[in-house]
Every structure is written in structure tokens, then in C-alpha cells.
Design a protein around this nucleic acid. Structure first.
Lengths: 157, 157
DNA sequence: TATTATATGTAGCCTTCGCTACACATGTTG
DNA sequence: CAACATGTGTAGCGAAGGCTACATATAATA
């Protein structure tokens, strides 16, 4: 029976390795935390879209666009109100605060860049749109800039 | 007071628009669902790493690498056992099933491609590693292929 | 305006990932 | 082998996103 190589010992715990492991942990922590913001961004993005096209954002429409029930929307909106991204009044539609509008703008901007970038790479429209939905939330400023640069290079030949 | 543009009417509900909205909803649904697999992939990836380097994967080591407590690991591992990705015995370390090993291999492969791709684009090592952690789970087969192709083009000068 | 259709809200449930605190098993070492 | 360190397990909590079922409010229309 294969027993422990380095038993009960927190793996090869030299400092170099420890730092690498801590870095890895930090990346995972960041990614997990990002997940909370992702949903917030999706909501404000959709809300901004709806306000632009319909003049207002109603819970049912948000629900339809996100593919959830209106109950889920109501609950999540409550969180976003707590976080001061949107505001509501009972039985009235949903508004963005200044912070919410800013976040929506940022999200939309990033989203567009990612889509454009993927298309420039030769990815189909459908896949570009689908993948961007997931990717956009995990792109650092540095990477986003690299995406933009690539698009520019492609356009200027 | 601004009243409804198109009151009580599920937005401009012509068929064309309806299809677009349904597509958007579907993308969001997929992205949300992906989140469950993400965590599974992170776990099997780390477990595979640990088995390679240490000969075994212990809960504490997984915890350290993912930046969570061992309790969280134990709980999540229970789910992965239910999903037949890993197997355990009380007070023994953690093993991958065939399905788990396969998933780990796939995840690792994708992860490497994404990192390599980002670096080829000119992104720093740190950012490439950090962003890949989030991006890798949202890259479709088609996009992954585009990434690989780009890397190949870069290497062949 | 009364009826009906649609939107919003509330109650209460599930699941998942987090956590702390404490109990118990296993390994290491004097 | 006893004592101590370290790893594993369990109880019980919170926050979030999801849901169904039902109640209530608002809007459209006969």
C-alpha cells in the first residue's frame, strides 16, 4: 500500500514553493470573489440595456433576459439596492444609481471589447457572444488592453 | 412623471427581438450553470497536481492551494464524490476516479493553452496566470481552437 | 367602471459555498 | 508507548442564488 511520501508534512514546504502556493490560493480567492460581482454586472448591464431600449427596466423583462424567474430578480435586486447600485419603489420599475450606471458602462465597454476581440481572432458570432458572457468578468485591465491592442493591429492591417 | 413607453407590454415583442432575448437568456443560463463545473474543475485540477508532486492529495493541501478552510474542502469533496469525480475513505487521502482524472486532464490542458495564449498576446506572467484561472472555464471548444491557432502562428514566427 | 390580464411582492423551501468551534483519528517524536 | 502535533470529521451557522405557490397591486379592455 502506497504510503505518504513526506508524511504529515505540509508538502515540500520550502519558502519558494510556499510562495507559489500562496499565489495560487490568492488567484482562486480573487476568482471566487469575482463571481459575486459578475452577477451584479450582468444585472446592471441588462438594466441599462432595457432603459435604453424601453425607457424603463421591469423585473419581468430582466428575468426574461437573464433566464430566471422574476422572484430571483426581486431578491437579487434587493442585494443590489443594499450595495447602492440600483434603486426601486414598490410596484415601480427599477433604476440605476450613479454607481450602477458607471458599473453598467464599464461592463458594457468590456463586453464589447471581448466580443470584438474574439471575432477578430476568427471566432464565430454565436461563440463570441456566448463566451464573452463568461470571459468578460475575468479579464484584468492589463489583458483587456492587450485585447484592444490586438484589435487595433488587425484593423490597421 | 415619465410613464411607461409601451405599458405592461413585454417590451417590443416581435419575433425577431424575442429570439434575440431568448438567446441572451440561454447564454446567461449556460454561464451560470458553468459556475458549478468551474469549482469541480478547480478541485480535480489541484488534486491531480498534488498527486503528481506529492504522491497523494490531502484535504489540507487542497485547502491551502484553493485558499479555503479544510471544512469547505471536505464538504465540496462530498459533492464531487456524489458526482463520481473523486473517491475517499475516512481519514485517508483523496483519489480521482477515471472520470475525475479525465476532467483534470482536460482542465489542465485548457488552462495551459489559455496561459500560453495570454502570454503570446503580451500579457505578463502574473496577469496571465491570474486571468487564466477565471477565463479557462468559459472558453468554448471553438474559441480554444482559435487560441491554439494564434499561438501556433506566433511560434512559426 | 368592472373584469381580466399582467406585474410585483412574500413565504418558504432547496442547494452550494463559505465560516468557526469543537471532537476525534492518525502520525511523529521524546 | 505516551504525549503532542497535525490532519480529518461533524454540528451548526450565514449569505446567495435558485425555485414554486400564493397574495396583492397595477394596467388594459370590454
Amino acid at each position: 500500500m502506497a504510503r505518504r511520501i513526506s508524511p504529515q508534512n505540509p508538502e515540500s514546504r520550502n519558502t519558494t514553493d510556499g510562495r507559489r502556493v500562496e499565489q495560487q490560493a490568492e488567484n482562486h480567492r480573487r476568482t471566487r470573489k469575482a463571481h459575486l460581482s459578475e452577477i451584479a454586472e450582468d444585472y446592471v448591464e441588462v438594466i441599462a440595456e432595457l432603459i435604453d431600449s424601453n425607457g424603463e427596466a421591469r423585473a419581468v423583462d430582466i428575468a426574461r433576459r437573464l433566464g430566471v424567474t422574476h422572484v430571483t430578480v426581486v431578491k437579487t435586486i434587493a442585494r443590489l439596492v443594499r450595495e447602492d447600485l440600483v434603486s426601486t419603489k414598490p410596484y415601480r420599475s427599477i433604476f440605476l444609481t450613479d454607481a450602477g450606471r458607471q458599473l453598467a458602462e464599464k461592463a458594457r465597454h468590456r463586453h464589447q471589447i471581448v466580443v470584438r476581440f474574439l471575432k477578430s481572432l476568427g471566432v464565430s458570432d454565436a461563440a463570441a457572444n456566448a463566451d464573452a458572457e463568461g470571459i468578460e468578468h475575468h479579464v484584468s485591465a492589463e489583458t483587456l488592453q492587450a485585447f484592444e491592442q490586438y484589435c487595433r493591429r488587425m484593423n490597421h492591417e
